[in-house]
Simulated scan of single mutants.
Amino acid sequence: MPKAITLSQILTNFKKDIQSARKLVEAVRPLAAIDTSKQQRSLHIKQVYRVVELAFLGVVSEWESFLEETFVRYLAGAQASSGAPVVLSAGKAKNIGHSYQIISQKPDYDSSSHYLKFADPKWTLSQASFFFVNAGTYQCLHANMARLLEAAKLRNRAAHNSEKCKADFKEVAISYLMPTSGKLSQGYRLGELLSQKAVRHFGAAAHKDEYVEAFFKLYERLANKIVPQANSQSGFPA
């Protein structure tokens, strides 16, 4: 039987995923060009934006998996190696499978046909508040809810082409860019937005970073709070 994965390993794996995405973005940046015929070993700027989008989407997906994988383990009684213990509001689950049954309220829960809503940060915090005293280590989601909801909207725009997703993306992008016209240029892409300097919403410490990196650091910081480790680095200040 394979050894059960620990909370610490889940945290480590998630941070490795972020670092991999970060290196991908760093690798393609120098290759960006408007006219690739004039520069060897180059990518058109729109292709670079697409790579940035994919890196961001991958991290958002891994963040949702991180939330789910840690949540079901806390509910089954697991504890991080540092920090205050997560206190259950009621009895603990018998095992991880039982955690899924409890959260989903489906005794026949099957991951191949059912899914939980960890993609929704409000739902995640609501569940944490129900199952854990003071929402456990997930209480850190509350102060960062606006950014997490924006990240979900940005992810949805890349994954879906509905009018609602377009409108949500436009709302977030305008709040980040504050264009004097109050409008985005036609065909404005997620990758282009994520490539702008993070001069709004993420604090002064993030101004030197692009928005994609600001989100990466946000996820790292929150992950370190959800699974606290001795001597862990939490990224930029709250």
Rank of each mutant, 00 (worst) to 15 (best):
L218V: 11
S104P: 11
L218K: 00
K106D: 12
K166Q: 10
E171M: 00
L57A: 11
N134F: 09
G83Q: 03
A33H: 04
P228N: 04
I226N: 04
L88E: 03
C165E: 11
E62S: 14
R50N: 14
F215A: 02
N156H: 04
P85E: 03
A223N: 12
F236N: 06
R221T: 05
L193E: 03
M1N: 13
L184W: 06
F202G: 01
K117H: 15
D17E: 15
S8Q: 12
F236R: 15
T36P: 00
S232D: 13
A173F: 09
R147M: 12
Q47M: 10
F215K: 05
P121L: 14
L11R: 13
I45Q: 06
Q101A: 10
Q9W: 06
T70Y: 02
G97N: 15
R73H: 08
L116V: 14
L184S: 08
S111C: 09
C140H: 07
Q101R: 15
Q101N: 10
S42Q: 08
T124F: 01
P179V: 02
K225T: 07
A167E: 07
K197I: 03
I226W: 05
P237G: 02
I45K: 08
G235C: 03
I45S: 08
A93L: 10
I5Y: 01
A173E: 06
A151T: 09
E53F: 08
F130T: 10
A206N: 10
Y211E: 05
Y176A: 09
Y138H: 04
E210Q: 07
I45V: 11
A204L: 12
Q233Y: 13
G203W: 01
Q79A: 06
K183T: 12
I34Y: 09
E220A: 15
S82T: 10
P30Q: 03
K217T: 00
N231M: 12
Q19R: 07
S126P: 00
Q139C: 10
Y176V: 06
